[in-house]
Structure formats: structure tokens, C-alpha cells
């Protein structure tokens, strides 16, 4: 099973997005962003299950929680930028 990562400029922004997703009943986890997804170093991301990617993106846009980029993360750890 794969998952999606949404990157944020700060830990607090990621937490804020995570809080919105929880309220919308989207399971998610705030975590450090992979180095590859962190252009300036030390970035943060919200991870959601593969089945929830589009809904999560839609909720974040609706609540004006802009994310940097979105990535598809495979079980094997392969990271691929993707548009959601």
C-alpha cells in the first residue's frame, strides 16, 4: 500500500494541516519530510493513506492550508512528486 505526503514550510503549518484533516476524518500523521522533498532542509510533511490523497488535498485547499508539494510514497520508500 502506498501513501501520499504533503509538504509544509514549517512544523506548525504541518500540524495545523494535520489538525484540519483529523477534523475532516482523514487519517494522517505529521512527520519529517524526506530530505529529497525538503528543498531548504528540515521540512515537514503530512502523510495520508493512498486512498485518502485526493480527499486530503481537497480538504487542505478548502481550509486554505497551502501545501508545498505532494508526493506518492511507495512501501519500498520510493518518492515521486505527483499532482493532487
Amino acid at each position: 500500500m502506498f501513501s501520499y505526503l504533503f509538504t509544509f514550510r514549517s512544523l506548525t503549518a504541518a500540524q495545523s494541516a494535520g489538525s484540519i484533516l483529523h477534523r475532516a476524518a482523514v487519517a494522517c500523521q505529521v512527520q519529517r519530510a524526506p530530505a529529497q522533498a525538503s528543498a531548504q532542509g528540515c521540512g515537514y510533511a503530512v502523510r495520508v493513506p493512498g486512498t485518502e490523497g485526493r480527499r486530503a488535498a481537497s480538504v487542505l485547499r478548502m481550509w486554505q492550508r497551502p501545501f508545498g508539494k505532494s508526493y506518492r510514497l511507495s512501501d519500498g520508500g520510493r518518492l515521486e512528486e505527483t499532482a493532487l
Binding site: R9, S10, L11, T12, A13, A39, Q40, G41, C42, G43, Y44
Partner: peptide, 14 residues
């Protein structure tokens, strides 16, 4: 956050 930058991040609260 943004550790490669020479300056502090531009966003709050960081």
C-alpha cells in the same frame, strides 16, 4: 526548519 537558509525563515512562528 529551512536549515539551508542563511537567514531565519520568513514565516511564523519559526
Amino acid at each position: 526548519s529551512d536549515s539551508r537558509l542563511d537567514d531565519m525563515p520568513t514565516y511564523l512562528p519559526d
